[in-house]
């Protein structure tokens, strides 16, 4: 359902930014080819802003596109969770703050949606929303609906998994990884996976090679999850992109829980926070 109020405000802001040349491009959402579900849209001229929409299918984390636009003034529509990834990118110095104009949206939640199919219920991440208001923005569209500090994360599915025996867990994950076709949609859609060359494709040294098989797939997913520890902001886009429904967010939630417990760290709440995996404190030796 189109949120006409938010949509209009986004269009107005986009027009203003493009007309004043404050931004060369506005990355937002437009209605997709099934006439119902939104998709990312790159708008370069004020004439194009009428394409922009905002509704409960705007699932994509548009911060993912920022790294490739390095150096070019870009405005981007960011939901509260997506805005956390902008903070992570700033913290990791992948984007320059003055080149990004964040159109933050206080969002009411996104529904599960598959192209051409009726919309489903609220996405899991939204049911466990940690705060509807973006932690970083240049303009805020919509009314902040939740107070600070952000709500705690929901680790109930991690707990369910941990209640199983190690054998059961191993069997579960082996079955999931056996199904993986290594299309890398999970990685490519991830804001945090911006490496020029992913370890999985490196030839020298070769970590996994080109073989698509359970052990290699497992290595890919586990290493990727580790690389996202303390960085993943739980947008769950990896899991949404997976064509064979591997519950990838479960791995990320586990590492999120660990980072929270060990370092008290929640990723993306501020651009100045220290990244636990990139910071060393002498007392950690203990």
């Amino acid at each position: 359902m189109l949120n006409s109020d938010l949509t209009q405000q986004i269009r107005d802001k986009a027009r203003e930014l493009l007309e004043s040349k404050a931004a060369e491009c506005v990355i937002g959402y437009e209605t997709g080819s099934d006439g119902a579900i939104a998709r990312p849209a790159f708008i370069y001229s004020p004439d194009g802003v009428e394409r922009l929409v905002f509704d409960d299918t705007c699932t994509h984390n548009l911060a993912s596109y920022l790294v490739n636009r390095k150096g070019k003034a870009t405005a981007v529509v960011l939901k509260a969770c997506d805005a956390r990834s902008l903070n992570v990118l700033l913290q990791e110095k992948q984007v320059a703050r003055d080149k990004v104009y964040a159109i933050g949206v206080a969002c009411d939640g996104i529904r599960q949606a598959v192209w051409g199919r009726p919309k489903g219920e609220l996405q899991d991440r939204c049911k466990a929303c940690q705060g509807h208001t973006p932690p970083i923005y240049d303009v805020l569209i919509g009314q902040p609906t939740s107070p600070d500090p952000p709500a705690p994360s929901d680790f109930s599915r991690v707990a369910e998994m941990e209640a199983k025996t190690p054998e059961e867990r191993l069997a579960f994950w082996q079955r999931q990884f056996a199904r993986c076709i290594r299309c890398y949609a999970c990685r490519q859609i991830c804001f945090g996976c911006y490496c020029q060359e992913c370890f999985v494709e490196r030839l020298d040294p070769e970590w996994t090679g080109i073989r698509v098989a359970p052990a290699q797939n497992q290595m890919y997913h586990i290493i990727r999850a580790f690389h996202l520890a303390g960085r993943c902001i739980a947008c769950d886009e990896c899991q949404r992109a997976c064509p064979v429904d591997i519950p990838l967010s479960l791995l990320n939630r586990k590492l999120e829980e660990e980072t929270l417990e060990m370092f008290g760290h929640r990723s993306g709440l501020s651009a100045e926070a220290q990244a636990p995996m990139a910071t060393f404190r002498p007392e950690e030796l203990e």
Binding site: F42, Y65, I181, R182, C183, Y184, A185, Q188, I189, G209
Partner: peptide
């Protein structure tokens, strides 16, 4: 292509795409 994330999903789910790589393991 602006919105393309250049993953391999389209080519791998495709009924027709057949490109391949050859390497040693």
């Amino acid at each position: 292509a602006d919105r393309c994330i250049h993953c391999n999903i389209c080519t791998f789910v495709c009924a027709d795409c057949y490109c391949f790589d050859v390497r040693d393991a």
